[in-house]
Amino acid sequence: MEILKITGLNKAFGRNHALTDIDLSVPKGAVYGLLGPNGAGKTTLIRIINQIIDADSGSIFFKNELLEPKHISKIGYLPEERGLYKKMKVWDQLIYFARLKGLSASDATKKVDFWLDKMNINSWKEKRIDDLSKGMAQKVQFISAVIHEPEFLILDEPFSGFDPVNAEIIKNEILELQMKGITLMLSTHRMESVELLCDHVAMINRSNKILDGKLSDIKQQFRPHEYKVKLKPFSGELPSEWNIEEHAESVSFSIKLNGTPVNKVLTDLMSFGEIVSFTERIPSIEELFIQQVKHESHG
């Protein structure tokens, strides 16, 4: 079942198209990566899902209902640029955001207490934000995004600005949230975090969606049919078209199938030496992305 479904979404600012005919579908429980270079339209899309701005046309369904203000309490949002009131105390600030999301006063108190304990920062609750380090403030910000236990959490560039220790903490929190059945949408231009966390992705470039689906399917679809071979060569000459890298006792190179069945290639290779390894090269999401963007701009 999909938690979020977007059909035919368009948004323009003046003559600039920010989003053109976007269709998306986010399955419940997924970690969904929203990829694209800066200025592609990611933030606009997120703002529309958050009902901060309206689309020009198209529709959004949240759990099969047309998206409307009452869904705000079901959606959490961690914006890219972190914002907190500098002069406000941690506790007051979290209560304020929780209440704005529609929590009652007593629920808000309970939830804030729970999260401060969970993140091990209960001792800071009387501190003002400008007395905290950047990492500490970001933990507070993260809590503010999840305080109302949203079913759908949007994280815009969640790892930017975190030091490795805190990034690890946030990553674990994300995985824990997913285990609880919360659907996550990660918007980022840093592909390595996508690789680690996401199971679904959509790529947006210059206002258009250029690719989306299950990450493993996409990789399957766009695999280059290329294999990495490592073998201990027999005494004979190796074909010169192989781009060979020599090691102490072995050589390694890549081989493209070009339509030849894998087994045929493998048997052929056996005659050149003792095979140490034979693995298919799976493209990284970054590679795919660059390839797609280039393809777009050529086509």
Binding site: R47, N50, Q51, I52, I72, I75, Y77, P79, E80, E81, R82, G83, L84, Y85, K86, F97, L100, K101, G102, S144, A145
Partner: peptide
């Protein structure tokens, strides 16, 4: 200006 430049406003207007 404080809310705008610190982007607090993004969180606020997603709920109000």
């Amino acid at each position: 200006i404080e809310e705008k430049s610190s982007r607090i406003v993004e969180i606020l207007v997603s709920s109000i």
